[in-house]
């Protein structure tokens, strides 16, 4: 169980202090798929970094299974938007997965089977000799996923992993991810600013407000069967609801004026 309680995050720099997060509370159950949704710069990555242990909280607490998160831990693996810089460009597909097994001190005898298993899971087993520079954007993300899964973490923290992909590839990646999630039962925290993506993936969506002092303004339980039918009227209703939450107040009032 991942839990943040009343978390604040203040960035201090030479140019002054910035209150990024204020009073963020969220509990994520094991095996749950939660999307963090919010406008650019609201602090989604910051919250994810706190969950990963890359950033410390300025106030409040962040815990994983009731122990405070103080540093990065192999139970929670982060997946980055820019797979190109997260992967090791000097290692092949297969060697990138092996790197994780090596630093995690998985016994050597288990390496080949583990590598096979996870490369097959993301359909990269026929590209194992290629280098990251020779993979497409979607393939790089799948490799990043395989590398993360291979070290068998409990939690996947994903920071806009599919934002740079084209719509078709992104939809395919959603299928791949949901399939893996169903099979492995990982807890997934998925950051996005794409409302449709959040609705099609998540069990729950945490909608965040615009910074500074951003917080979670609404927790939405999707409660729809998977695979999700995006033409379902409930989806449109959710979409509008979230969109109105994300629209800045100024814009909303001017829209209201136009209606009258």
């Amino acid at each position: 169980m991942l839990r943040v309680t009343d978390v604040c995050k203040v960035f201090e720099s030479a140019r002054g202090t910035y209150f990024a997060l204020d009073g963020v509370s969220l509990t994520i159950r094991d095996g749950e798929f939660v999307c963090l949704l919010g406008p650019s710069g609201c602090g989604k990555s910051t919250l994810l970094n706190i969950l990963a242990g890359f950033e410390s909280v300025s106030g409040g607490t962040a815990t994983f299974n009731n122990t405070a998160i103080t540093r990065a831990d192999r139970e929670r693996v982060m997946l980055f938007q820019d797979a190109g810089s997260a992967l090791l460009p000097w290692l092949s597909t297969e060697e990138n997965v092996r790197f994780g097994l090596r630093v995690r001190k998985v016994p050597k005898v288990d390496w080949p089977a583990t590598i096979d298993k996870y490369l097959r899971m993301v359909s990269l087993d026929s590209h194992r000799a290629k280098f990251p520079a020779e993979l497409s954007g979607g393939m790089r993300q799948r490799l990043q996923i395989a590398r993360a899964l291979a070290v068998e973490p409990k939690v996947l923290l994903m920071d806009e992993p599919f934002a740079a992909l084209d719509a078709l590839t992104r939809r395919h990646m959603h299928t791949v991810l949901l399939d893996i999630w169903r099979r492995t039962g990982k807890t997934i925290v998925f950051v996005t600013h794409d409302i449709a993506e959040a609705i099609s993936l998540a069990d729950r969506i945490a909608v965040m407000s615009t910074g500074p002092r951003s917080t979670i303004t609404r927790l939405i339980d999707i409660g729809l069967q998977r695979p999700r039918d995006m033409t379902n009227p409930k989806v449109a209703q959710l979409f509008n609801e979230i969109e109105s939450l994300l629209t800045p107040d100024v814009l909303r009032s001017s829209e209201r004026l136009e209606v009258h």
Binding site: F54, V77, A86, G100, V103, V151
Partner: peptide
């Protein structure tokens, strides 16, 4: 790249 270092860190690298 900081992402590369962090990725390695959460994979378990010291």
């Amino acid at each position: 790249p900081i992402a590369r270092q962090r990725a390695a860190e959460c994979l378990g690298a010291n």
